[in-house]
Design a protein around this nucleic acid. Structure first.
Lengths: 220, 220
DNA sequence: GTAATTCACTAGCGGTCGCTACAAAAATCA
DNA sequence: TGATTTTTGTAGCGACCGCTAGTGAATTAC
């Protein structure tokens, strides 16, 4: 008798819930009385603001406006809901970093844009301050959860490093550049900016920070 | 992590009269059976590693090797114990920043030393990684505790800023230097380094980070 | 219609949380 | 010797934690 919940719909095949390409038939039983996407967004905001541990299931059922059994049926247990929240956060709010790395012509331009956009994103009053990936699972008594976000942070730094190394190979950066150090510096700036946003720094202050931080890059 | 046998404080054997600096008269009731300083140190390490929320009173009584009533009698409730822990942490582990600001001849030298020593301190295997002030009260459901550490972080940045402004007045830094931005950058580096130490960065990696971070300072 | 299926709600499980009442134990004071 | 004062260990308080059994409501399939 595992506490395991059979994740009936966690596979979520990309298509709209029930409006679009459905395999012909309507679902069998009583329909859900809440919008799953909306409830998930509320969960994102709650975890973003208070972190994994400090957000209780009863907090979640309140802000998502559903009962506990509905939450467990729709999202699994607290930990799997948080995993989905982190994934969706990455799509809705954390994609600016990957976009900068993919779209800018050089690593330097990518990091500059990344920091500039982080200053705006982390201080946007439309949602909690800072970065969920940086703050939501620090001091977490569930090691897997803490490790999961740690992995994401380190993966982000590794992605920046790869982009820098690509520039070195392409000759856009000097061969003696320490790609790891530059990438780590960008990561530290991101994390420091997130912390300072939470501590009350303004967008303008973080933008100045982002700008002067770029002066460590070699002149090209 | 020594095994550390809990030496139940053998009651002073020779004449009690010449035993160290005694406060005038002996206390009236049954003497305490544990060393308060040692117990406090254990509490520091526990809060440092797991944070305020994730460290339960039962965790504390276990690592401090005392019963709950003894803990409450000696330190007050969990929150006031944490306050004392933070104070004592500042004295025992966090004083390198203030010392650098006080002892170095210039703000630049002070910040350079501060970052260099942070790289060593935050990765010292003799205690938990990173900085307690940065990490122990994020996502804390007791607002006063979270606010308290936030205040310390912002005060540290303000202290760096004051030191920089003093250098500007003294002519050791150009008059057009943005003291606030430079100080904020140092704070972001400290916080980013603390996070990366927790995420597994080595002392050498953080030292490189500390060094390149100093290149944002104007050449003097 | 009836059966089958899925969701919502109430109620509550065992466990841990921070904290404390209580009485025995160990010291000083008279 | 008591009487007093303080600490100690036991034992457990009420509140909240994550989570779920059980029952009835809402829908489709036959």
């Amino acid at each position: 008798m595992h506490p395991m919940v059979t994740n009936k719909e966690s596979e979520e095949k990309g298509g709209g819930a029930r409006a679009k390409a459905r395999p012909a038939s309507k679902p069998r039983g009583r329909p859900r009385s809440f919008d799953r996407e909306t409830a998930l967004e509320k969960a994102i905001l709650a975890f973003w603001e208070h972190g994994y541990e400090a957000t209780s299931v009863s907090d979640l059922t309140r802000v998502m406006d559903i009962g506990a059994p509905s939450l467990y049926a729709a999202f699994g247990d607290k930990q799997s809901l948080f995993e989905e929240v982190v994934r969706e956060y990455g799509v809705r709010y954390g994609s600016f970093a990957d976009r900068a790395l993919a779209e800018e012509p050089t690593a330097r331009a990518a990091v500059a844009r990344m920091l500039r956009e982080a200053a705006a994103e982390y201080t946007d009053p439309a949602h909690p301050y800072g970065c969920l990936v940086v703050h939501a699972a620090t001091n977490c008594s569930t090691p897997e959860v803490e490790e999961s976000l740690r992995g994401r942070r380190n993966a982000n730094i590794a992605a920046i490093r790869s982009r820098i190394e690509a520039d070195i190979v392409a000759g856009a950066l000097p061969a003696d550049v320490d790609a790891g150090a530059l990438a780590r510096h960008a990561g530290a700036m991101i994390q420091g900016m997130s912390q300072q946003a939470r501590d009350g720094a303004s967008r303008e202050e973080l933008e100045v920070l982002a700008e002067i931080a770029m002066s460590i890059w070699p002149r090209t």
